[in-house]
Design a protein around this nucleic acid. Structure first.
Lengths: 257, 257
DNA sequence: TTTTAACTTGCAAAAACGTGCAGAATATTG
DNA sequence: CAATATTCTGCACGTTTTTGCAAGTTAAAA
């Protein structure tokens, strides 16, 4: 690989920052070859990136700072009152006869487990856990296949997105890795972001269900802006979410202990 | 799976931690191969993980420290000694690097839960429960989608069969609703029979795993004849299955208490 | 019991790190 | 334009981390 015409610290570092933000890792040795500088120089670049808080330095290079999201299973096991309260509230949005499209995530699994028996509805999801939950409630269910994402515990990839594109749902439920009044909904994983985007596109109405801790942050991959979200179910204080209301979202508050 | 670009203690340990948090176990020997380091290095990694309190070290590797509440997918299967013994035996047929195709059913869910960590394998299944189980063992997994069958808890239908037809597996595991020396394998449900048939067609070798009570009966829908079955894992007495041997099957006996 | 595999400990080689420094490149100022 | 200051870069040297290997010990399995 050829070095850029301008081989500044600034230029290099912005390239490196871009790469870690895309989820890549930085290998000092190969970067030295690529940029045609000594490993020391790359080390210094990484050093400043670490100071800025963009990367975590490790021996031989650096890795993204953001802790990779905990796999779905460990999130499943712990009971979580605020999550359950959210789920309880979101159940009220459903009605028998609806076609419901489900994203993955622990909150939505909890929601699926709380669904009533709806013999005329259809649940569509690429999350095995949600498919099992809805099936257990005797709700007709369509499972979307694909490569399983270890991070999210649901199927992702081109085939998955394509299959979802053939669905026309009345309402979809989305989990959030990050949600910001200005920039909208974000995901930690590229593939999951693509799935979420298609879910939105395939639904008449979009409902985001998230706990307050995800608000105001942003993650790596953008999904949709706030103007494309119809409903927001959250346990955040009214104060914390007033910015969302101006964006035209309908808010459903849950006040957890 | 190939070792990560940055093969640090930090990187490795975070990967390992992730796996045990997902309920998986760490096998020093295979991890050494996977990360392309000596078993000593893996042992040292596990040692620090133990100091941090993340794992309990055992001979040959490590297991999760806390007996975590049973995740959603294992709750689907009630414990059953004879079934577990079958599953244990069938695990021995697998090896890292294989493409494994899984039918649904409780016996095979139990089998999937007992799989070792096989980073170079691929598990393909239309059963959500099996997909979750194999994913928990950090095995690359492809979920086959489709309409969910309430009876079998797995995806069925034309789309499912078509997707499976695009797979080329080394070995498949089939459950049985009925198995007869003369007529072969049978299923109770039309759609499930179609899936089973395609699973056989997409696999180089066919392994049927079933308890003795399914032998000698026949059910509603025919799947395949005995001559197309390569292996039979069962807990039936030798007497009960001698008829199968004449059909060219390889028998794997389990003698349960 | 014997045998095999895994563990512990110690050690030495290799790789990477930190620091200081001097020359080159670039920017700033007169 | 010239002089100066600042930044950037590569290198040398000593230190730390990481890793694989070998010898002796322990635990499991046959």
């Amino acid at each position: 690989m050829t070095p850029p015409e301008l081989n500044n610290p600034v230029v290099r570092q912005s390239i490196l920052r871009q790469r870690v933000e895309a989820g890549g890792t930085l290998v000092a040795r190969s970067l030295a070859t690529e940029f045609d500088v000594s490993p020391d120089t790359i080390r210094r670049d990484i050093l400043t990136l670490e100071e800025t808080g963009y990367v975590q330095r490790v021996r031989g290079g650096a890795v993204p700072l953001v802790a990779r999201p905990t796999p779905i299973f460990s999130r499943l096991v712990t009971e979580n009152p605020s999550r359950d309260a959210l789920a309880e509230k979101a159940v009220g949005l459903t009605a028998d006869g609806m076609v419901l499209l489900f994203d993955g995530g622990s909150t939505l699994i909890s929601l699926a487990q709380k669904l009533p028996t709806m013999p005329n509805s259809l649940v569509v999801t690429s999350s095995p856990a949600i498919a099992l939950a809805s099936l257990a409630k005797a709700i007709p269910t369509v499972l979307i296949g694909g490569r399983m994402s270890i991070a999210g515990g649901l199927a992702v990839g081109a085939e998955t997105v394509k299959a979802i594109s053939q669905i026309s749902a009345d309402l979809c439920f989305l989990g959030a890795c990050a949600l910001d009044p200005e920039s909208g909904l974000w995901a930690d994983d590229f593939d999951e972001a693509a799935v979420k985007t298609q879910i939105c596109a395939s639904s008449a109405r979009v409902c985001v269900v998230t706990t307050s801790e995800k608000l105001g942050r942003s993650a790596r991959h953008h999904v949709i802006g706030c103007k494309d979200i119809d409903l927001l179910v959250t346990d955040a204080t009214h104060q914390a979410v007033c910015a969302f209301e101006t964006e035209g979202l309908e808010l459903l508050h849950v006040y957890s202990a």
